[in-house]
Design a protein around this nucleic acid. Structure first.
Length: 550
DNA sequence: ATAGGGTTAG
């Protein structure tokens, strides 16, 4: 039987098909002998990849005699997307030895794979190869390079690529802006944003997403609001991910009022937006509200996925009461996602934070497949309980399993050192993180290091560490240093720290809160008065402020 | 004639 040619073509161009439909289409194509045509093979490879049937995709690839560059790229992308990096790289190498040479899109796929497996060496090698093959100034290749370098924290290399391009296209601008964003350098991102508009480039929704991810500090609320305003002005509200990104931004900026207001204005918030709101409430210490919203979502008939269940579990963990978490555990089992790695890791974390480290350990041991996320949660929990030695042992296990530790692993290890006051061990892990594993320290790591060094009484050293940062330190780092000054009653340094902060152009309300805490504990009420921040204005934006107003 | 793909969120 032959189905009409046009019908087949239109079926193939539909973006989604179930696996069964894909197989039926495949069968038809074999019958019509069209499967030897790389065009049809490419379509099918894509459909198989969407349905996670990579072996069928690969088989089809092998059986296609004439492989176009499209076909090569599709199969490489399919492997990279599923994080089967070694297969993707093997194909790339095979390609280099054959007559079909890679194009800019091939490079984009491979570069992204390098950044996702946190392989800076591989990234540099592929970069070099790309330049040799003539893609050094290609915008597709360069935007992939810019994002890959910035995701691994190498802003210098990313910007070198970016500024080497005379007339960047929109995607390239966006890549650099979000690159600055994900490295926490929001000021540079804003500067670029202004420059791009001066040049008459019209920003799109990716641009504002890139801008907003850099806003992580509550002192930057005003800037966040202006980003939101820009979205409204440009009418980006109908673009799905923009709303979830903004809810997430307000949550990070500790302004749950605005997050909720925005959420509430949406007709049909998607799962990501629900989860951004729930996580936001939980991180703003409103754990019960977070759990209420999880229930509300269920009542509205929305079906939470495993990420959402994990967010709810994180909220349950914060309550430090085991019952809600237990209920969620049952819920996860009923919905068949308790063995999802994100869920089991969240469960481990929840049980441990609610006082049942044993239960968490048991769960961990029973996990059939452990990945770095599950290891990270168990290491963090051991550290939290003061079992530093066990945390370190688990880290050795990670290494012997051949799993690559990530930045959270080291944050957990440094946290373990903090809890047990192991200054030298902490320094050693900090060093190994960079030298051995090529992971550049982020805010979180500096917070731990500052705490570790500062709490040991080495206030000057901690101060020097903060000053030596390439990026402007955010308030969590300064906060850590201020609390160390507080503990060691070094009010002189506390004021120097504060002064340094006030020199920066940002609004500094949260810094004032910290400083006034210190003044207050010293009984210097006049100085508290002198700070003269508008307490009412801060209500609900900075946790802990309510206590200070009273 | 058609086709792949670079920047984004929980």
């Amino acid at each position: 039987m032959l189905i009409p040619f046009r019908a087949l073509l239109s079926e193939l161009s539909r973006p989604h098909h179930t696996l069964l439909r894909t197989q039926i289409l495949h069968a038809f194509i074999i019958k019509t002998h069209l499967s030897r045509d790389p065009f049809y093979a490419t379509r099918l490879v894509r459909l198989y990849a969407i349905n996670n049937d990579l072996s069928s995709a690969h088989q089809l690839f092998d059986e296609t005699p004439q492989r176009s560059i499209f076909l090569w790229n599709s199969i490489i992308r399919a492997y990279a997307k599923t994080h089967l990096f070694s297969d993707a790289f093997a194909l790339f190498k095979r390609m280099l030895s054959l007559e079909t040479s890679p194009d800019n899109f091939t490079f984009a796929c491979i570069l992204r794979a390098c950044s996702e497996k946190a392989d800076i060496n591989g990234l540099e090698i592929v970069h070099g190869l790309g330049v040799v093959l003539g893609f050094g100034l290609d915008s597709v290749c360069c935007s992939a390079l810019v994002s890959a370098y910035s995701k691994l924290g190498h802003l210098d290399k990313a910007s070198r690529v970016f500024y080497g391009i005379l007339e960047p296209d929109l995607v390239l601008w966006n890549s650099m802006i979000s690159g600055y964003g994900c490295c926490g350098n929001w000021e540079k991102g804003m500067e670029l944003f202004r420059k791009m508009r001066e040049l008459g480039k019209c920003p799109d929704s990716y641009t504002v997403v890139g801008l907003s991810i850099g806003l992580t500090d509550p002192t930057l609320l005003r800037i966040g609001e202006s980003v939101h305003g820009f979205c409204v002005k440009c009418n980006f509200g109908w673009i799905g991910h923009v709303n979830s990104v903004l809810v997430n931004m307000y949550s990070r900026l500790k302004c749950m009022d605005s997050a909720y207001k925005l959420f509430n204005s949406l007709l049909q918030p998607d799962l990501v937006t629900w989860s951004a709101l729930i996580t936001g409430f939980s991180q703003a210490e409103q754990h019960n509200l977070a759990l209420d919203f999880f229930r509300k979502m269920n009542l509205e008939g929305r079906k939470p996925d495993h990420v959402l269940i994990s967010s709810a579990l994180a909220a349950a963990a914060q309550t430090a009461i085991v019952r809600p978490g237990c209920e969620l555990h049952g819920y996860a089992i009923r919905h068949g996602c308790h063995s999802e790695v994100t869920v089991s890791s969240a469960l481990i974390d929840m049980y441990a934070k609610c006082g049942y480290l044993g239960l968490g350990m048991k769960l961990f041991k029973s996990m059939p497949k452990k990945n770095i996320v599950s290891y990270n949660s168990i290491i963090a929990c051991l550290g939290l309980y003061g079992f530093a030695a066990e945390a370190f042992k688990t880290f050795e296990e990670v290494l012997s399993e051949g799993i690559r530790p990530d930045e959270s692993t080291f944050a957990a290890l440094l946290g373990a050192c903090c809890h047990s006051g192991l200054v030298d061990t902490g320094r050693e892990y900090f060093r190994r993180m960079r030298d051995e594993f090529g992971i550049l320290p982020k805010n979180e790591h500096y917070v731990h290091m500052v705490k570790l060094i500062g709490m040991a009484g080495e206030l000057t050293e901690a101060f020097e560490l903060v000053q030596s940062l390439q990026q402007p330190a955010d308030s969590s780092i300064w906060g850590a240093l201020l609390s160390c000054c507080n503990v060691h009653e070094n009010y002189e340094l506390a004021e120097v720290v504060a002064e340094n902060l006030f020199k920066s152009k940002q609004t500094k309300n949260s810094y004032k809160v910290m400083l006034s805490n210190i003044y207050a504990s010293d009984g210097r009420w006049d100085d508290v008065q002198k700070l003269r921040f508008d307490a009412e204005d801060l209500k609900g934006k900075i946790p802990g402020i309510a206590g200070l107003i009273v």
